[in-house]
Design a protein around this nucleic acid. Structure first.
Length: 278
DNA sequence: GTCCAGGTTTTTA
DNA sequence: TAAAAACATGGA
């Protein structure tokens, strides 16, 4: 997508679907908040970002050309042509088309793999407001201050020597021991996040599930949102309901190489538009 | 007080 | 093996 430097800001002129609210509030990331109408503030890749949308323009405040190219263009997946992908997905069935059309501006973020892993460990048997709270406290307590009240996501190294008691301020419950196991195994490369990038996806699945507290669902979320493996297909309670009601008999593989994108549209659509009681 | 939340592990039959 | 129960916490 085309962008320009205006004063000290980056302005994206959207030629492809991109809705900031839909993208940041569809349950794939937990560190951005809407601070005013259409304006979001948060942290990713150790950088504080203020980003807002005005129709087809998206403005990244005070962002340099270098940071935009190296960090944010990749984070917001700006090189992928979602129009083409959604056109293909919509052919799958009428329900798939409905899901694509419900929130057409969703893009799959390319987050930091470790942050995605840790975030979705915290997400298990939990609700989104509380997930955000726990992650926020994790960053405040163990990350580095970046700007004002904004903190970086702590690295495995920052957590590896802690004990469960040290994580008590997070109020993460039984997930604390999982966070620590993940930090240790990623730090000592028992689970090598670099190698996972180039692994066959089934090997990557086995690798990630070496971590205590990481099962199929957390694993798929990590692969999709942290490694940008767009064929990964997280099956949570919502997706199970949706598959049964809207895609009976289908499996994730049926959706093809961009199944993960299909999943995100279905997930958001099911949570916000489908009444499963009828 | 009960139920539930983008699940996984542990226990039980 | 497969199905329950347990796991912390907090809001509805």
């Amino acid at each position: 997508m085309k962008f320009s430097l205006v004063d000290d800001d980056i302005v994206i002129n959207c030629s492809e679907p991109f809705d900031l609210g839909q993208t940041l509030n569809c349950g794939q990331c937990f560190r951005f908040n809407e601070v005013s109408d259409g304006c979001f503030e948060g942290v990713a890749f150790n950088r504080h970002l203020v980003i807002s949308q005005d129709n087809d323009k998206i403005i990244l405040k005070g962002v340099s050309k270098e940071d935009f190219k190296q960090i944010w263009a990749k984070y917001f997946d700006l090189d992928l042509e979602y129009n083409n992908i959604k056109k293909e997905l919509s052919k799958f069935s009428d329900n798939m088309k409905q899901a694509c059309d419900f929130a057409p501006g969703i893009r799959i973020l390319y987050q930091d793999p470790w942050e995605a892993l840790c975030s979705f460990i915290i997400s298990q048997n939990n609700n989104i407001p509380r997930i955000k709270g726990i992650i926020s406290r994790l960053c405040e307590n163990f990350g580095k201050k970046i700007y004002d009240n904004y903190y970086s996501f702590p690295e495995p190294e920052d957590l590896k020597d802690l004990c469960e008691q040290d994580l008590a301020p997070l109020r993460s419950g039984f997930r604390a021991k999982y966070i620590l196991d993940a930090a240790r195994k990623v730090y000592n490369k028992e689970v090598d996040m670099q190698l996972i990038h180039n692994m066959d996806i089934d090997d990557a699945r086995i690798e990630l599930q070496k971590i205590n507290g990481v099962g199929p669902k957390v694993c798929e979320c990590t692969l999709l949102y942290g490694f940008h493996r767009l064929e990964a297909f997280p099956m949570d309670v919502w997706m199970k309901r949706a598959m049964k009601a809207l895609f009976p008999g289908n499996t994730p593989e049926d959706f093809g190489p961009f199944a993960g994108i299909a999943q995100q549209y279905i997930f958001h659509y099911s949570r916000n538009a489908v009444d499963f009681n009828v």
